[in-house]
């Protein structure tokens, strides 16, 4: 195919998105069945809630991951689950300390507000909230977290210690004390009212985000108060 559209001015490029920088992997660990933490050297400042794009090398398309670590730690962490048909995650899981990966500067605007907040997440969607809590951001009024199985409540010790009873876990396939055995969407739907002046932060798979957003909207929360982060 022809390559007619060539860059005419490289000075204005959104560098953070475009440029990949070499980082050293410090560890890869499986923290639950199929869920991994990848840690690597931190080279850039970031705001809790931001993302980085990661690739194995410059020849492959980078993918976006929310940062799941404190903004003062020496290492940066991301959280991922292996997508069997995916290109990158099976390879990320096999990385060893000392390997290198390519990472962009952090970017993104899913960052905390000055208002009271509810955080709602499933799966690896907990990542930006881990970063917020570890960075010392004011805890939310509620953190609502959904999983299929009990071992999938990632970072639950951290969340229990910082958020206490306002950390609500919803497990759809298994039962345990202090954990709701239902879908988080069912619990939200059952509430007569929801606070309308606070901000709702939603992060997780797109289906959860759109379904829960519709539920919250139906309870009268203005759409201006709902922030959604999608994973793609």
């Amino acid at each position: 195919m022809a390559f007619l559209c060539l860059p005419v001015n490289t000075n204005k490029m959104p560098q953070k998105i475009k440029q990949l920088h070499k980082h050293l992997v410090t560890s890869v660990s499986e923290i639950a069945d199929n869920y991994f933490i990848l840690s690597f050297t931190r080279k850039f400042k970031f705001k809790p809630g931001q993302v980085v794009a990661i690739a194995l090398d410059k020849s492959h398309e980078p993918r976006l991951y929310s940062i799941a670590s404190s903004n003062t730690a020496n290492e940066m962490r991301i959280l991922f689950d292996i997508k069997q048909e995916g290109f990158l995650t099976p390879k990320l899981a096999k990385l060893k300390a000392g390997d290198s990966i390519m990472v962009t500067e952090p970017f993104g605007e899913f960052i905390p507000s000055n208002s009271e907040e509810w955080w709602i997440a499933t799966g690896t969607g907990i990542a930006p909230f881990v970063s917020m809590i570890e960075s010392g951001i004011k805890p939310p009024k509620k953190l609502i977290y959904g999983a299929r199985y009990l071992d999938q409540f990632l970072f639950q010790d951290l969340m229990l210690s910082k958020i206490g009873n306002n950390y609500m876990r919803f497990c759809t396939q298994e039962k345990a004390d202090n954990i709701f055995n239902e879908r988080l969407s069912a619990w939200i739907e059952r509430q007569d009212t929801l606070p309308k002046q606070i901000k709702y932060y939603l992060c997780g798979n797109p289906e959860m985000v759109v379904d829960v957003r519709d539920l919250i909207l139906a309870k009268g929360v203005p759409f201006e108060n709902i922030m959604a982060e999608i994973y793609f």
Partner: peptide, 20 residues
């Protein structure tokens, strides 16, 4: 939600890099 990661100004800046 895409605006969280790829703000519209950056989309515009990207377009300005090219001669269409």
């Amino acid at each position: 939600p895409i605006e969280n990661v790829y703000p519209i100004e950056q989309v515009m800046d990207t377009l300005k890099e090219y001669d269409f």
